[in-house]
Design a protein around this nucleic acid. Structure first.
Lengths: 220, 220
DNA sequence: GAAACCATAATTGTATCCAATATTGATTTA
DNA sequence: TAAATCAATATTGGATACAATTATGGTTTC
């Protein structure tokens, strides 16, 4: 999200489309026509197709055969799976990173939390959310593990946005994040891992127990 | 692998390229030039690019900026991560599927094992390997969980092939598979989960303790 | 009047061509 | 002679044109 420099055009518009989805401009189930999108984003269909494919692999859009792509609409089963996996994998990442945390990592995490306080846009909040977790996990240097976790987080983002659990209760998430960060700073490994678990459980619970806003139920 | 019917051309050649990689025709680190590949597979560069992107998302090739794509060469850290994740996620899938196993699932699993006995080609063995595990996990109906596990399995395949742990010791893997299947048939849930754990540990161990065959160390 | 069938249009996938970027090699200069 | 610079080539990313597939609407037939 920093800038489009050194980034292929397909990646740039993938970010843009992801933002449009997370901000609710494109609602779940809505079909994403290639020609309309390409002219809307002022690009050709070629990079657009690459962007859609990338988003499909990340679970934000669902694409099938020759029928085109639509914004994914996460069902409860998908949300359960995503959080079940995150609850298994993220503690491992945190545990592996714990010995290698530096002040810079904590600073990066704190900066993300501070920025989130004054942010309303769901896509930005989602990004900052991941930035925080990533700051705590990355020192593990387990790139493959982190890549999978990032996928799961980005896929969860859509469900979180739909349930309005990010924008509606930012203070709750923020408090949990701060507690987690403090435990990490203190070097309280078991405490931090426990806090991470409850944080994920809490997020999962909030998503499940909120009625998703009615979306115009695309033609099926 | 059944047939190319109803499959987009990009997907078909993605399968072909994956086969070529797993069978050792394309060695790890080797650059994959688009024009050469496209004329070799008798397709245009457009679907080829989609295939490469798909393979990149699955971890079989690494693509960077404008420099092109190369066959991925899995480092030990990647292998460790993949198996650490599989050891956490696959028991969950098996556990979730356990109550819903039918005779058809067991038959499908057994068929895959039988087919593997008379198979030499690494890519086929890798496919059959996944077919077996998938047969035991799919009744869980947890599609999102299964999709992630499939990614991890396909990414592990390359490392397994490089270490020759599939082709060199098929009988060991086969024995573990049969034991696991028997436990499932008996309804011994805890036993099956334990066997799955040791099976994954064994596979991981075999990969780590074999010297990868020297590959012509592509130009860096 | 309902269902099957065929033609037309809309949309996606593929091939070809052009632009942008990276790599290679020679040439020049210190 | 070695290093830097710049031109020429090779390779990838993107735009446009074409083919294949699917969806849609009307017509026909029972």
């Amino acid at each position: 999200m920093v800038s489009d420099t050194n980034k292929t055009q397909a990646e740039s518009i993938a970010d843009k489309i992801r933002t449009l989805i997370l901000n609710g401009t494109f609602q779940p189930g809505q079909p994403l026509r290639q020609e309309a999108l390409s002219e809307h984003l002022n690009v050709s269909r070629t990079p657009l197709r690459h962007a859609l494919q990338s988003l499909a692999e990340n679970g934000l859009v669902e694409t099938t055969g020759f029928k085109g792509a639509r914004v994914a609409k996460p069902d409860p089963g998908m949300v359960d799976d995503l959080f079940a996996m995150r609850m298994l994998l993220e503690p491992l990442a945190l545990k592996s990173a714990f010995q290698h945390h530096t002040k810079l990592d904590f600073a990066a995490a704190e900066m993300a939390l501070d920025a989130a306080e004054n942010e309303q846009q769901p896509s930005r909040l989602s990004d900052l959310n991941w930035t925080f977790h990533d700051a705590l996990y990355r020192p593990s240097n387990r790139h493959t593990l982190l890549r999978t976790i990032e996928h799961l987080n980005r896929a969860s983002a859509l469900a979180e946005v739909i349930a309005s659990s990010i924008v509606a209760r930012p203070e709750k998430s923020a408090a949990e994040h701060r507690q987690l960060l403090e435990a990490c700073k203190k070097g309280d490994e078991t405490g931090a891992i426990a806090l991470l678990g409850t944080h994920l459980q809490s997020a999962h619970h909030d998503i499940r127990n909120r009625n998703p806003r009615e979306c115009p139920s695309s033609t099926e």
